[in-house]
Amino acid sequence: MSIRVKDLTYVYNPGMPGETKALDGVSLDVEDGTVLGIIGHTGSGKSTLLQHLNGLIKPDSGEIYIGDVCITSGDVKMTEIRRRVGLVFQYPEYQLFEETVAKDVAFGPRNLGLSDEEIDRRVKVAIAMVGLDYDEIAEVSPFDLSGGMKRRVAIAGVIAMEPEILILDEPTAGLDPAAHRDILSMVRRIHDEMKITLIFVSHNMGDVAEMSDRVIVMSEGRIAFDGTPREVFSHATELSEMGLSVPPAREIVEQIKAKAKDFESDALTLDEAAADIREYLEAARG
């Protein structure tokens, strides 16, 4: 499902001492099936934008179309938006509340008013989709699981609503490296298998470079850069002024370029960088 955002503006605490323009004329078109990475430091407006996309916040001005439905017009049904756009918050494990994993995952589908059979089917699919074993985990209390597992269950709760757009706010925050890798490959699998549009926020530039088809950079409520990872991460200086950085592979490549003048590489991932280095060294030997 595609997304079209037109001239979105939102102000926190209007007319108050703490008045801040969280979004300032944001426009954005996202094609169906895209993986869109969003970067920006705390307070840049990322989270506010995400919450607009499934109608949790109403803009002060501007329009949002999900597919061809305008969700900012007054007469749209909220459940309809929530069904189409799944939003997974930061630390989603903190929203778990049911006695069993299966019941918790069923919360969303139940709110959609589906039949019991359909809910059961969706719960099973969603739990499998996040890489957990239904028979093993369905009747377990979500509070007895490890941090990484809890997060999977929480994500399954959103997936069970079978959204056409899935939004994840820092899905790997606070996890150890192993759990981090697992969640990332899980997110990628969800995108590929469910054939949905995926939007994710991350502070890990390496992940953003590797996962995204397209990256937007938020700064002070505006979109500062918008393009392919390669285009966006070519603005190293501007990014660092915003308190952001380029992927580690790019940082290393830049250091190599500074020393070896004829070394050429626009690598963003370690794989690409390694390939360029091998090629260069082979040429040097040969």
Partner: peptide, 26 residues
């Protein structure tokens, strides 16, 4: 938490008093 549950389709604004109280559990 309210927003996270709303994103899962929770509805805190309609229904009778019992339904509303029940909707607070999540």
């Amino acid at each position: 938490i309210i927003k996270a549950q709303q994103a899962r389709g929770a509805d805190f604004e309609s229904g009778n008093i019992i339904q509303r109280v029940k909707s607070l559990i999540p």
